[in-house]
């Protein structure tokens, strides 16, 4: 089934096929991260819809009784930690593009720590609530949203951890070839694509964190 075609186009040589595989892999990482953001946006949108739907209905006047407030301090600290983690990683990545590999590694590890701090604070906050999950519409949305956000955040941190671990394991592989930030080897190119994709997703998560902080603590 593999006759040579009469067409003027020659078949793709084996080394070109490797190039195709690489560009497909990089494209897949790019598309996958954007699609992941799309899917997560719809999941978060379900909670945002719930927030506004129940708030506008205010069934039996029990959308948000006055005394029910999660800790503003803990909630704000968790959000700030998340935003700081995303910004730090964004900055580290820009340093990597300038060839400063160590800067990215430090930023990545620090970002991982800040992300874990944010997740930990949000879990801690759930243990310090002055209301029960079913005591109002607001309470339900809050108690429901936090675990979803924490799970997605932990998933993102897992992703970051694998990238940091990989970069550490192969740290000497491209010595003298521009290292991770500048090497044109397929492995380095893929790793950078994955870093870009992660960065995009992490910024998205931090923006969602800010948006829901606004919902829960400002609009409430």
């Amino acid at each position: 089934m593999t006759d040579v075609a009469e067409s003027a186009l020659p078949p793709i040589p084996a080394d070109a096929e490797e190039g195709l595989a690489l560009s497909a892999a990089i494209g897949s990482i790019w598309t996958g991260s954007r699609l992941l953001i799309g899917a997560c946006s719809f999941l978060y949108a379900a909670f945002a819809f719930t927030f506004f739907y129940l708030r506008s209905l205010n069934s039996y006047g029990r959308w948000h009784p006055k005394a029910q407030h999660p800790s503003l301090l803990i909630g704000t600290a968790a959000t700030v930690a998340l935003v700081a983690a995303a910004l730090l990683h964004y900055y580290g990545l820009s340093r990597l593009r300038h060839g400063l590999n160590l800067d990215w590694r430090v930023a990545g590890i620090a970002s991982l720590g800040l992300g874990l701090l944010s997740a930990g604070l949000q879990i801690y906050q759930l243990t310090r609530l002055n209301f029960f999950p079913g005591s109002s519409g607001y309470a339900s949305v809050f108690v429901g949203w936090v675990p979803v956000h924490v799970v997605l955040l932990l998933g993102a941190l897992y992703w970051l951890e694998t990238l940091v671990a990989r970069s550490l394991r192969v740290r000497n592989a491209w010595h003298g070839q521009g290292d991770l930030g500048g090497s044109v080897t397929p492995e380095a190119t893929r790793l950078r694509a994955s870093l870009d994709a992660f960065n995009y997703f992490f910024v998205f998560l931090s923006l969602v964190g800010v948006a829901f902080w606004f919902l829960f603590y400002v609009i409430d």
Binding site: T50, Y53, L54, L57, N58, S59, Y60, R62, W63, H64, F132, P133, G134, S135, S136, G137, Y138, A139, S140, V141, V143, G144
Partner: peptide, 16 residues
């Protein structure tokens, strides 16, 4: 955990 997303009397809504 007995949230009240879909319980009208506790601030939720079955229409949700």
């Amino acid at each position: 955990i007995q949230t009240s997303f879909f319980t009208d009397t506790l601030g939720g809504s079955s229409y949700l």
